[in-house]
Design a protein around this nucleic acid. Structure first.
Length: 861
RNA sequence: GCCGCCGUAGCUCAGUGGUAGAGCGCAUCCUUGGUAAGGCUGAGGUCGGCAGUUCAAUCCUGCCCGGCGGCACCA
C-alpha cells in the first residue's frame, strides 16, 4: 500500500504531457469533427485567484472530455493585457507598464500551467503584442473606410478618477465600472463604432443562440431596447419658431392613444426649450433647475415631475382644430427618441402624474373589457392594459394593435410621420485617453483633416519611453511621438493620441486563435473551420459588455468578408463566483481564513483566532475579495492538497452556474476522495487479470460501473459537473464494498473493468490522478489519448426488481418481480401475495395501478 | 414597479409524477506501524407555506412568503 503523493505525481505527468506535446491542436481538417473550447481570457494581474481556477477547470473538463470523444479540439489561452492597472502601477511604483505586464504574464502562465490545463500553449498571445494590436489597427482602418468607425463631437461619460471616457455600457448606476467614481458629462471629439447599424441583427439573432443562458439573452435584449412605434411632427399653431424645423417631431409607441393627447412635452435640453429660454428668463431659470438634479438612478427615480408651460401650442395631427400646449418637463430624455413626446395621461403613468400636478385634462381612449364607456374613469392609475379604442374617430372599436397600425398608416398618408423603430442602444464610444492601449492609427492634418495611416505604416507602435509620473494621457505628453507628416499631403501633422477601449481587443481574439501567426488579422480558412466557438465560458458580468461587443464585431468583420460566421459563440456558459465565509474580530477588523480556526460541536460552529485564541465572528458568505480579506490563494492550496483536489473541489461544490463556496473542510473532502480513488487502484493486483464468469458480486460491480459511465457522461454533456462528481463518490462507495484483497477472479475481473473506466472518467476532473491510476492498472499509453469509455445498455438493467406496493397512496410493502414484467403479470403476483390481503384489511379492492418497473398502487375503500 | 433564477439533512448541493440521496459537519465505536492519518456504524428531512389537478405531488398548476440577479421616468 502506497500513499498518493501529488507533489511528485502532478509535476511528473505535466512533464509527460509536455514531452508528448499532448495538447497541440490538430490541423484544420474539415473531415474531422471540431470542437472549440474557450474560457474568457484573463487580465494579467500577476496573480491567479480561485475564480480563475474555477473558470479554467470548467473549460478543461469540456476540452478533455471532447478530446476523449474523438473531437479535434482547439483550447487556446491568451492575455487581455492592455488596460489601466498597468498604468496605475507605473504611476505608483515607477515601473514600465510593458515590463510590468509581461512580467505578470510570465508569472501567471506558470501558475496556469500548474493547473494542468489541456491548453495548446503554442497559440498563446497577448493583446499588447505588437503582432496583435497591429492587426487590430489594420481592420480598424477597414471599418473606418466603410463608415463603421467615425469621429464626432458628443456628450460623453468622463471618469474623473481614471481620467478617461467610458462607454455607456461601462457606466453602472452613474459610476465608472472600474473606479466607482461619479461619472461626469463632457463634450469631446471621440471615436465611435457604429454598433447601432447592427442593432436589429443583434436583437433578432439572439433567438438563434439556443445554447446561451436565457438570462444573458434577456439582458442583451433589454440593453439594446428596441421599440417599434411612430415618429411624426406636430404643426405649430402659428409660425414655427425662427431657425427651428417646421414641425415639432415626437416619437411614440402608443399611436393608438393619440386622441387621448392633452399636451406635448419636450426635454429641458431640447432645441426648442433653448429657443424659448433665449427670450424668457423664467424659462431659462427652469431649465437650469432641471439640470441641477442628480444623475444617479436613485435621484432620477425619486425626482418629482416638474414642468413649465412654454406658452406655445401645436395642432393635433388628426384634428387640427384641437390645440395642445407645449410643456418643458424634467422626465423627458433628450437622448431617446426625439426628445419630445405627446402626453396621454389616461394611459401612461408618468403623463398622468404630470397632468394631475399641473391640472391638464385626462381623456381615456382605451376602454377596458367589461367597462361602460359612459362611466369609465381614470383616477390616479393610468390604464395600460388591453381594450378597445373609443372616442377616437376612425380608430373607434379597434383593438390596440390594430389601432396602432391604423394610426401609423393614416399618419404616413398625411405625410406627417412614419412608422419607426427606436433603440436604447447607442454607438460604442471606443476612444480612451490612455497610453497603455492600442493606438488609433490616424493623423490629424490641418489641410486634409483626419487621415488614416497607409498600410505600409502599420503597425503603429506606441513609444517605449513614456512618462507615467503624472496622471493623464502619457502619449499626449510625449515630446516627439505625436509629431509626424501627413500621409496625404506631407505637411506637418499630429498623431491621434486616443487609444482603443480594451473591449475592442477582446472582441476578436477568439478569431485570431484560429491562426495566431496569420499575416493578416484573421486567417479566414482557419477561422471558417474553427469558428464559432462551440463552448465559451466566463463570468456573467460581461453579459452586455464583452459579449455584445464581440457579437457586433463578428458581424462587422463578416460583412468585411474576413469571417463567415455571424455569431462568435454558439454555446455560452456563465459560471458563478467563488465565495468564502468572512471573519472579523469583535472590533470589526477583517481576518483572513488562514488565521482563523473553526471548531464544531453538534451543529454549532465556533471560530477563534489561531494566534491568540480570541473569539472571531463568523460573517456572511461573500465573493472572495481583498477588501474583506476572505481570499484563499490557489498556490497554497496546491501545495497542501495538490492541484487535482483543488480542481475537484471547485467543480464538485455546486452547479457551475451558481456561486461556489470555498471551504477548508470541503477541499479536505476532495483530498480524501483523491486518496480513496488511489487506494482502489493501488489495491488491485498488478498484471493481467484472467477473465472469469461473473458471480452476483461481479454483476453488482459491473452494473455500477456501466451506470456510472452513462450518468457521468450525461452529467458532463449537460454541464452538471457537480452532479457527475456526486456519482463518482457513490460509485467509489460501491467499489469499496468489494475489496480486491481476498477477492475471487470474478470480482477481480469486474474491478479491473471498473477501474479502467474510472481512470478515464475522472480524467477531465483530476487529470494527474487519472494518469497515475491508468498507469497503475496497465492502461495503454496515456489516459489523455484514451477513448471515452462506452457502456452496455444491457448491463444497466437489473434482472429482478423490488417494487414498492402502495395502498391508497401509502407505502405498505414491496414485491419482487422480474424486470420488464407486464402490468397484468405484476398484478397477479401482488394479488397472490398473502401479505397483501393483510394490508388490505377489510377494505374492498377498487383498482390496481401498475407502473411498469416502478411501483404498484392499490386503490381500496 | 417589471422580468428571471432559487428555496430538499446543521452546511453546500443532487434528484424524481411512484421506496428521499451525496459530500462535508455531527455522534458512537474500532485502529494507534497508512498516524499533522485511516476505518465501521449511526442520528438527522411536515422536500418554504396554502390550495388545486391526480389512484399517487418534493416534482405539475395557481396564489403567497423569503433570498438572489437583471432592468427601470426609454415615451
Amino acid at each position: 500500500m502506497t500513499r498518493y503523493n501529488p507533489k511528485k505525481t502532478e509535476p511528473h505527468w505535466r512533464n509527460v504531457w509536455t514531452q508528448a506535446d499532448a495538447f497541440r491542436t490538430g490541423p484544420a481538417d474539415p473531415s474531422l469533427p471540431k470542437y472549440y473550447v474557450l474560457e474568457m481570457f484573463p487580465y494579467p494581474s500577476g496573480r491567479l485567484h480561485m475564480g480563475h481556477v474555477r473558470n479554467y477547470s470548467l473549460g478543461d473538463v469540456v476540452a478533455r472530455y471532447k478530446r476523449a470523444r474523438g473531437f479535434n479540439v482547439l483550447h487556446p489561452m491568451g492575455w487581455d493585457a492592455f488596460g489601466l492597472p498597468a498604468e496605475n502601477a507605473a504611476m505608483e511604483r515607477g515601473v514600465d507598464p510593458k515590463a510590468w505586464t509581461y512580467d505578470n504574464i510570465s508569472r501567471m502562465r506558470d501558475e496556469l500551467k500548474e493547473l494542468g490545463l489541456s491548453v495548446d500553449w503554442s497559440r498563446e498571445f497577448a493583446t499588447c503584442d505588437l503582432a496583435y494590436y497591429g492587426q487590430q489597427q489594420s481592420w480598424f482602418l477597414d471599418l473606418f473606410k466603410r463608415g463603421l468607425v467615425y469621429r464626432r463631437e458628443g456628450v460623453v461619460n468622463w471618469d474623473p478618477v481614471d481620467q478617461t471616457v467610458l462607454a455607456n455600457e461601462q457606466v453602472v448606476d452613474g459610476r465608472g465600472w472600474r473606479s466607482g467614481a461619479l461619472v461626469e458629462k463632457r463634450k469631446l471629439n471621440q471615436w465611435f463604432m457604429r454598433i447601432t447599424d447592427y442593432a436589429d441583427d443583434l436583437v433578432d439573432s439572439l433567438k438563434t443562440l439556443d445554447r446561451w443562458p436565457d438570462k444573458v439573452r434577456t439582458m442583451q435584449e433589454n440593453w439594446i431596447g428596441r421599440s417599434k412605434g411612430l415618429r411624426f411632427s406636430f404643426a405649430y399653431a402659428g409660425d414655427a419658431p425662427a431657425g427651428l424645423p417646421e414641425g415639432l417631431e415626437v416619437y411614440t409607441t402608443r399611436p393608438d392613444t393619440l386622441f387621448g393627447a392633452s399636451f406635448v412635452g419636450i426635454a429641458a435640453d431640447h432645441p426648442l426649450a433653448d429657443h424659448v429660454a433665449a427670450s424668457r428668463p423664467d424659462v431659462a431659470a427652469f431649465i437650469a433647475a432641471c439640470r441641477q438634479g442628480g444623475a444617479s438612478e436613485a435621484e432620477i427615480e425619486t425626482a418629482e415631475k416638474i414642468g413649465f408651460d412654454t406658452g406655445l401650442s401645436v395642432a393635433h395631427p388628426f384634428d387640427p382644430a384641437q390645440r395642445l400646449p407645449v410643456w418643458i418637463a424634467n422626465f423627458i430624455l433628450m437622448d431617446y427618441g426625439t426628445g419630445a413626446i405627446f402626453g396621454c395621461p389616461a394611459h401612461d403613468q408618468r403623463d398622468l402624474d404630470f397632468a394631475r400636478k399641473y391640472g391638464l385634462s385626462v381623456h381615456p381612449v382605451v376602454l377596458p373589457p367589461g367597462e361602460d364607456p359612459d362611466t369609465f374613469e381614470v383616477g390616479t392609475e393610468a390604464y395600460t392594459g388591453p381594450g378597445r379604442i373609443y372616442r377616437s374617430q376612425f380608430l373607434d372599436g379597434l383593438e390596440i394593435e390594430a389601432a396602432k397600425a391604423a394610426a401609423i398608416q393614416r399618419m404616413e398618408d398625411l405625410g406627417q410621420g412614419k412608422g419607426a423603430t427606436v433603440f436604447r442602444l447607442r454607438d460604442w464610444g471606443v476612444s480612451r485617453q490612455r497610453a497603455w492601449g492600442c493606438p488609433i492609427p490616424v493623423v490629424h492634418c490641418e489641410a486634409c483633416g483626419v487621415v488614416p495611416l497607409p498600410a505600409t505604416d502599420l503597425p503603429l507602435a506606441m513609444p517605449d519611453d513614456l512618462d507615467f509620473s503624472k496622471p493623464g494621457n502619457a502619449l499626449l505628453r510625449h515630446p516627439t511621438w505625436r509629431h509626424t507628416a501627413c500621409p496625404a499631403c506631407g505637411s506637418a501633422a499630429i498623431r491621434e493620441t486616443d487609444t482603443l477601449d480594451t473591449f475592442v481587443d477582446s472582441s476578436w481574439y477568439f478569431a485570431r486563435f484560429a491562426n495566431p501567426e496569420a499575416p493578416g488579422p484573421i486567417d479566414k480558412a482557419a477561422a471558417d473551420y474553427w469558428l464559432p466557438v462551440d463552448q465559451y465560458i466566463g463570468g456573467v458580468e460581461h453579459a452586455v459588455l464583452h459579449l455584445l461587443y464581440a457579437r457586433f464585431l463578428t458581424k462587422a468583420l463578416a460583412d468585411e468578408d474576413m469571417l463567415s460566421v455571424k455569431e462568435p459563440f454558439a454555446g455560452l456558459f456563465t459560471q458563478g463566483m467563488v465565495t468564502h465565509e468572512t471573519y472579523r474580530k469583535p472590533n470589526g477588523e477583517w481576518l483572513e481564513p488562514r488565521d482563523v480556526e473553526i471548531t464544531a460541536t453538534g451543529n454549532v460552529r465556533q471560530a477563534r483566532l489561531v494566534s491568540t485564541g480570541e473569539p472571531v465572528v463568523i460573517g456572511d458568505v461573500e465573493k472572495m475579495s481583498k477588501s474583506k480579506r476572505n481570499t484563499v490563494s490557489p498556490g497554497e492550496i496546491f501545495e497542501v492538497y495538490g492541484v487535482d483536489a483543488a480542481r475537484l473541489f471547485v467543480l464538485s461544490d455546486s452547479p457551475p452556474e451558481r456561486d461556489a463556496q470555498w471551504s477548508n473542510s470541503g477541499v479536505e473532502g476532495s483530498w480524501r476522495f483523491v486518496n480513496r480513488v488511489w487506494a482502489e487502484f493501488d489495491s488491485q493486483p498488478p498484471g493481467s487479470v484472467e477473465p472469469a464468469a461473473p458471480d452476483d458480486a461481479a454483476l453488482t460491480i459491473r452494473r455500477g460501473s456501466h451506470r456510472l459511465i452513462k450518468t457521468l457522461t450525461e452529467a458532463i454533456e449537460g454541464f452538471r459537473f457537480n452532479s457527475g462528481i456526486a456519482r463518482l463518490y457513490e460509485f467509489l462507495n460501491l467499489l469499496k464494498d468489494f475489496k480486491a484483497e481476498g477477492a475471487g477472479p470474478a470480482v477481480l475481473f469486474a474491478r479491473q473493468e471498473a477501474l479502467s473506466a474510472l481512470a478515464r472518467l475522472i480524467a477531465p476532473f483530476t487529470p494527474h490522478l487519472a494518469e497515475e491510476c491508468w498507469a497503475r492498472i496497465g492502461g495503454e499509453g496515456l489516459v489523455v489519448f484514451a477513448p471515452w469509455p462506452e457502456f452496455d445498455p444491457d448491463m444497466i438493467q437489473e434482472a429482478v426488481l423490488t417494487l414498492p406496493v402502495q395502498v391508497n397512496g401509502k407505502r405498505r410493502g414491496e414485491v419482487q418481480v422480474p424486470a420488464g414484467a407486464e402490468p397484468a403479470e405484476v398484478e397477479k403476483i401482488v394479488l397472490g401475495d398473502p401479505e397483501f390481503s393483510r394490508h388490505l384489511g377489510g377494505l374492498t379492492l377498487r383498482k390496481v395501478i401498475v407502473v411498469k418497473d416502478r411501483i404498484i398502487n392499490i386503490v381500496a375503500s
